[in-house]
């Protein structure tokens, strides 16, 4: 499609007025959309039309609109973030669609993510995982010089690959079990790879695994949908790493009986 053509699309959108209220699909039209519109700018156009027509605009989460804050979140035609590789919804552009397309739009669906309104969900369960153990327990001040502990380039790069996670929750939404293994695995792997995080690695992985169960996330059964949906290309190898770290922790007897059963089932 050339840059000057415009398209009209049909949107079939999940509308829900609030938490615990019934929801339903409603159909809207998106008119005069150019290939350069981002997906969210297309939604802006639809919302402006709705407001002018005296209807409630579609609520959706977004902030940076450059693929880094992890705020945007919607399932497009069954795929979180719309299915363009390594691309968040806000970075998806309408040139990926064509005139007359019908687009289904739904919120993340997972037990751990209650719907707040329309496409907006509550992802605080992910924060809870980090609050439990996703850190190095250092206080401000009194730390050694940045170059005092060397970190090999491969280790730094590996940690960075894991740390690129934006915490959007697409992995959970994509997983048939609503597991947060990719999210947690990335954090566990990042910190276990760096000397600064190694001291607490066994306790961290044990606590993280427990916290996943406590916060309503399911188990991993190796579907790898999470990796496919991840807009940052976080790899499932970090789940494998978390499992290895967990077994190491078991050997060190840092893990309670609950988690032993959990891991063995996988």
């Amino acid at each position: 499609m050339s840059a000057h053509e415009t398209m009209n699309l049909k949107l079939i959108v999940w509308r829900q007025a609030g938490p615990n209220q019934p929801g339903r699909f409603e159909t809207y039209e998106a008119k005069n959309i150019t290939p350069h519109h981002s997906f969210l700018e297309m939604l802006d156009v639809v919302n402006e039309d709705l407001i002018k027509a005296g209807q409630e605009p579609i609520a959706f989460d977004h902030d940076c609109r450059e693929g880094i804050c992890g705020m945007c979140s919607a399932v497009v035609n069954g795929v979180p973030h719309g299915g363009q590789q390594r691309t968040t919804l806000c970075q998806l552009h309408m040139r990926k669609f064509k005139d007359g397309d019908a687009i289904y739009l739904e919120p993340w669906r997972a037990r751990a993510f209650p719907i707040l309104r329309d496409l907006v969900v509550d992802r605080s369960a992910l924060d809870k995982l980090i609050q439990t153990a996703g850190f190095v327990s250092c206080h401000t001040g009194g730390v050694p010089d940045g170059n005092a502990v060397l970190v090999g380039k491969p280790q730094a790069d590996y940690a960075m690959d894991a740390a690129e996670c934006i915490g959007c929750g697409a992995c959970v939404a994509a997983c048939p079990n609503s597991a947060a293994m990719l999210f947690a695995g990335a954090k566990v792997s990042q910190l276990a790879e760096l000397p600064q995080g190694q001291v607490e690695a066994p306790q961290r992985v044990a606590a993280m695994v427990q916290a996943m169960a406590d916060n309503g996330f399911g188990n991993c059964s190796n579907h790898y949908e999470c990796e496919a949906a991840c807009p940052k290309g976080i790899k499932v190898k970090f789940i494998a790493r978390m499992n290895r770290e967990f077994i190491k922790a078991l050997a060190l007897e840092k893990v309670g009986a609950v988690n032993t059963a959990r891991l063995k089932s996988e």
């Binding site: 001040g141 060397l150 970190v151 380039k153 600064q196």
Partner: peptide, 22 residues
């Protein structure tokens, strides 16, 4: 300078050279 040290201690994966230095 304290900031860099603090962030390294937290596990911020700053870019490193092949010898492991920042």
């Amino acid at each position: 300078n304290n900031i860099i040290d603090q962030c390294v201690a937290q596990g911020v994966p700053f870019a490193r050279d092949y010898a492991g230095y920042l």
